[in-house]
């Protein structure tokens, strides 16, 4: 395996809240191989979007990055100054936003929004060159070139999401973080947009982090899946291994809640309540909902450890289970 494109080490983010500190991302580490499609799944509030924003160093008060290091092609991002970090967004790491119904500036034409992105990354192109570049770009995400002269409200949901993808890939980034890129779309459009994303990813040779709830979609799209629970990665493994032999009891519950991959299910049917991040239990955050929790789970937070070759898991009981 070649060197990682993106490496995240012990990333920690918290939000200050009047009732206590919310540890939204609590010591997450993982790395991304070139061309890899990495999935990140977890319940709502488990810290997925926060992590995406933290990688881009876009956490604003009341949020705070408490620690951790992020490397892109070996360059440490936390060491960059503000301007260098700004230039690295989109050019190095691009985000496809979560709420893309509303992610485009409503008063600006699509073409202009792409032009803004190019201009602020030092691509001051003449009008005809710019127009040609945009006209080339739009078809790669399945949009007609004349969409450039339209406003967001003139586009359908799927088209808006494609426009966001177009902006995200316009500088050929090394890494694309797609935060639930299709959660606001209906199923048919979802598939089309995912197909588009898959295609541009292949063409660019970029690595992708796909954030989402939908295990069915994950299974179709990603190579490797990380499961987040309460701000921590509890299991990381190749998608095949996760589906056939989940190690963490939480992952097992997730997989079990899927009748079959053809009947796509969402991460909802787990018994018990999602944890309150500002008031986590001692020990493993999952233990109150865990069917196999023992005394050790109530005392000691499990660390991610390797189990053979195909993945890592953070569970004291992992070895004892098949």
């Amino acid at each position: 395996m070649s060197r990682a494109v993106l490496e995240v080490r012990d990333l920690r983010v918290s939000y200050a809240h009047p009732l206590g500190v919310v540890r939204a991302v609590d010591g997450v580490s993982f790395s991304l191989a070139p061309n890899e499609r990495f999935g990140l799944a977890g319940e709502s509030g488990s810290g997925k979007s926060t992590m995406a924003l933290a990688i881009l160093r876009m956490i604003h008060p009341p949020g705070h990055i408490d620690g951790g290091r992020v490397f892109l092609d070996g360059v440490e991002l936390s060491a960059l100054d503000r301007e260098a970090m700004r230039r690295l967004r989109l050019a190095g790491i691009a985000l496809v936003p979560q709420g893309s119904m509303n992610s485009l500036n409503p008063v600006m034409r699509i073409g202009q929004q792409i032009a803004d992105a190019l201009a602020d990354h030092g691509e001051a192109l003449s009008r005809p060159v710019l127009d040609a570049r945009i006209a080339d770009l739009l078809p790669t995400v399945g949009l007609r070139p004349d969409v450039a002269s339209m406003y967001p409200h003139e586009l359908s949901g799927g088209m808006k999401q494609r426009a966001c993808i177009a902006i995200a890939i316009c500088l050929r980034p090394r890494v694309i973080i797609a935060d639930e890129p299709t959660s606001a779309l209906d199923v048919v459009v979802q598939r089309q947009v995912m197909a588009t994303l898959a295609r541009v990813q292949r063409d660019l040779g970029a690595a992708v982090i796909l954030v989402g709830h939908d295990m069915g979609l994950m299974a179709q799209f990603v190579d490797r899946l990380g499961i987040m629970y309460a701000g921590r990665l509890v299991e990381v493994a190749p998608i095949g291994a996760i589906v056939t032999a989940p190690r963490h009891p939480y992952t097992r519950a997730l997989v079990a809640s899927l009748p079959s991959l053809e009947h796509r299910g969402r991460l909802q049917g787990i018994p018990g309540l999602a944890p309150l991040l500002r008031d986590l239990p001692r020990g493993c955050a999952f233990h109150p909902r865990c069917p196999i929790a023992g005394e050790r789970c109530r005392q000691e937070t499990p660390a991610l450890r390797s189990l053979g070759t195909d993945g890592t898991v953070a569970c004291h009981a992992a070895e004892a289970t098949p």
Binding site: A91, M101, L104, A117
Partner: peptide, 14 residues
């Protein structure tokens, strides 16, 4: 608004 978050993620100048 989402479009401001996205604008920042696009690395636009402040």
């Amino acid at each position: 608004e989402d479009y401001v978050v996205f604008a920042e993620a696009e690395g636009l100048r402040a």
